[in-house]
Design a protein around this nucleic acid. Structure first.
Lengths: 227, 227
DNA sequence: GTCTATATCATGATAGAC
DNA sequence: GTCTATCATGATATAGAC
């Protein structure tokens, strides 16, 4: 009891979280059994229930471990940028980079357990389970509100509806891109090494998203139609 | 035997397919049991295995029923448009509308079983299961190649890499948007009735995607940075 | 073709020795 | 805190009466 108490504390929990991150990504939540999970983690079958209480609680812990710090960092970055700008609204591109960058940086940061979680996250946005989506939605809510406020200041002329839709589209592009990293692509012909290059991906994504956010609004399409 | 043979043939299969579409969307594949499915369809528990062979084969049948006609229609539409244009490359916007429209039209076409399937489809693009993604990828491949060819003709100056990435982004935006229709949104504040309006959604999506597709390429960001 | 009943197996969770 | 053994439940799939 007191003998192993030097630093045995979080060891098992960490192994479980890491294994869960990888297996949930590969096989989904329902497709990952506790037996497979604990075997992969090298811990006993009963350890999950002892340390987390249930499989559902483990799922929540997996997301909280990464999402809370990530979204806290996002909010802090926006706060910092606005402070630096001294009251001036931010460039839309800067806001987008702050949002996209937080995800992409995790892909490269191996210390952070990165890519597994990011891909898991991308998949989970469209998970069929209501409780899962509620969990993710709740964890994201503060950051989304903060970004929405920043966009509203940056684009005061854009109707609120339009902005919400475009944030939705931007979020979707990011989510799908993260989920599809490293998996079979519907479009063949992409150089595999590029998929892992977070820097390149950030540039490509940002360029795409900035253009989408600033796209001409409904009705402006007639200009192009007249060809 | 011969008595009920007037038109008993596909009735059970159709009921199963319809129920599967709805339940797979709500609870995912692994989350949908045969018991729940057959109960919802009003057929016997053994009917799925009799008519489809296995649960996996049923999943495949669910997707084939809708995707094959949808992608055939997409290809036919591009063919028709190119023929009408008489050798001239198509407008990027027209190509995008052809792609997006095929999905959105299904949402409104109640005869086609529409919305359930489209939402299921959006979710399945990021499904963790390899076999599922291989199935979807295979069913989409011909249409994707056809659209890629049309884009290449429309945008001859765009590098192949760049085009592939942007098609990937466009596809992701569409996939996520379809999956998120009618579900809890990460961004609050959207008028619920708008989510169902396929016409409005097509305009918003097209505007966003056209801008993204035609966005300035890598390097052009410096222009805006100089503020 | 449809149904009941059941075989076979895997799951999440827990009790209790250590 | 960790382990073994086990429970209760649910899964897919099938055999065989009708």
């Amino acid at each position: 009891m007191t003998l192993r108490a030097v630093k045995p504390h979080h060891e098992t929990q960490l192994r479980i979280l890491d294994a869960a991150e990888e297996l949930f990504m590969q096989h989904g939540f329902e497709g990952t059994s506790m037996r497979l999970l604990t075997a992969r983690a090298g811990v006993n079958l009963a350890a999950v229930n002892y340390h987390f209480g249930s499989k559902d609680a483990l799922i929540e812990a997996v997301f909280r471990r990464r999402l809370d710090p990530m979204n806290t960092a996002r909010i802090a970055e926006i706060d910092r940028m606005e402070k630096e700008a001294g009251g001036q609204p931010l460039e839309p591109e800067a806001i987008i980079r702050a949002f996209v960058g937080a995800s992409l940086r995790m892909i490269e940061d191996s210390k952070c357990g990165g890519r597994n979680f990011i891909r898991l996250l991308g998949r989970t946005y469209t998970d069929p389970s209501k409780s899962i989506r509620a969990l993710i939605g709740g964890l994201y809510a503060p950051a989304m509100e903060r970004f929405k406020a920043a966009f509203e200041r940056a684009l005061p002329q854009m109707p609120r509806d339009e902005l919400v839709w475009r944030m939705h589209f931007m979020f979707g592009t990011l989510a799908y891109t993260l989920a599809a990293t490293d998996t079979v692509q519907l479009i063949a012909g992409c150089k595999p090494e590029d998929r892992y290059d977070a820097r390149l991906l950030e540039e490509r994504l940002t360029s795409f998203l900035v253009a989408g956010l600033l796209a001409p609004q409904l009705g402006a399409k007639d200009v192009k139609k007249a060809a």
